[in-house]
Design a protein around this nucleic acid. Structure first.
Lengths: 223, 223
DNA sequence: TAGATTGTTAATCGATTAACAATC
DNA sequence: TAGATTGTTAATCGATTAACAATC
């Protein structure tokens, strides 16, 4: 028996879909209607067969010798990723990063609209940031279910992230986008996605440090 | 012949190191000096043998029956990731996200200090944001080499990211942390790390959409 | 000593890539 | 028709996990 394909996309393929999407939208805006895997692969630096495998998850069928319809792919990727339905989200932690996300209107074109912001700092509560009033965190468990909100964004310091996550669970939030660099303990049914900037920074600084060490060794060798 | 271990850490292991680091720093602050792989694994939800494999890349040797020295691990991870040397960086694109990163002093504890910011918007040039004066992008190729800066952060819209990357290459930048959701074409020697928030958002919205579709199907089945 | 834990080799698993048949 | 491109099955590659010997 064949698996239900929708449920079985490998995480690496899923992560590549937005890249295809961005690329295809650009092609479309240039008036290009058809594209082959080899062209996509050349521009995005993937091997063609990988592009083909990835695009298959969207359900779009290509024509041999012709390629894929750009418009069809764009629509299919958006549907697959759930970007055709805009989910309302609440954000907790109106610091630098939280403020930036509140101001990033463009997320709404990718299925996410932040409709309310919360903080515990009395100095911030009541302020209006990017058109949204900052509310007291104490009200979260009340407001989120009433507004039928399913996504929570955590942009607090790591120390309080777990407490905020607990509040979100109580408030009936189903998916958390966590920008705090800490592991959250939440019930199994919760969808959690960690966005650890330090983790990304790590691979950059590691590679750079490695290069510098190699240069130093090289210099020493010559002396 | 054995490979030079420093050069061969798998990307997934590298990405986990900051998580261990965060966890171990916390343990240390609680006065805990020794830790075993099973304890780390329990708290971070990794299998113990994976923890062991990952920690081996740092060069720290554990004692059977005893475990690892927390302090030793913290130092070794920091050295491995290059967090013991603070790299100066410049940032281009002082929008919402750029401003947030400029204000995030804590990066300096993880090897990164943003020392200058650039933009093309005349309305922004000359302003002081989080203590840094915003400079004209035109000056980048002059200033960066003079200050001996090796890291560039791109927080511009996708449309101009490639042009900014080109400027950075000219300016002698060696590593780019790219927050624009687009592929950069740069010379081979450049280290590029893409931080695509849409890509992360994709897996969240995809999983949520899948769940909603399942719920709808379930409701239909019952009617 | 006995048992817990490390370090390491072997087996498994999943993603990527290669090979090739099907198709326009 | 010939050739380019898709779709699919098989082989490869790399990371994870299991098994087990070494050690305190």
């Amino acid at each position: 028996m064949k698996e239900i394909s929708e449920f079985s996309i490998p995480e690496p393929s899923l992560k590549r879909l937005p890249q295809y999407h961005h690329y295809l939208v650009e092609l479309k805006s240039k008036g290009i209607n058809l594209v082959s895997c080899s062209t996509i692969g050349r521009d995005l630096e993937f091997v063609p067969v990988q592009v083909r495998k990835d695009l298959q998850f969207t359900g779009v069928i290509g024509k041999p010798k012709v390629g894929y319809s750009v418009a069809e792919l764009v629509v299919a990727i958006e549907a697959f990723l759930g970007w055709d339905i805009v989910n309302e989200a609440i954000l907790v932690g109106v610091g630098n990063l939280g403020t930036a996300i509140l101001g990033h209107e463009r997320f709404s074109r990718f299925g996410l609209q932040v409709v309310a912001a919360f903080d515990i700092d009395p100095g911030k509560i009541g302020q209006t940031i990017h058109g949204k009033t900052v509310l007291s965190l104490a009200g979260l468990a009340d407001i989120a279910p009433r507004m039928g909100i399913h996504i929570g964004i955590i942009t607090t310091p790591a120390e309080v992230a777990q407490a905020v996550a607990n509040e979100m669970v109580t408030a009936g939030i189903q998916a958390i986008w966590n920008f705090a660099p800490t592991k959250l303990n939440v019930p199994q049914h919760m969808i959690v996605h960690n966005e650890d900037l330090y983790s990304s920074l790590a691979s950059l600084s590691c590679k750079l440090a490695k290069r510098f060490r190699a240069q130093i060794r090289e210099t020493e060798r010559l002396n």
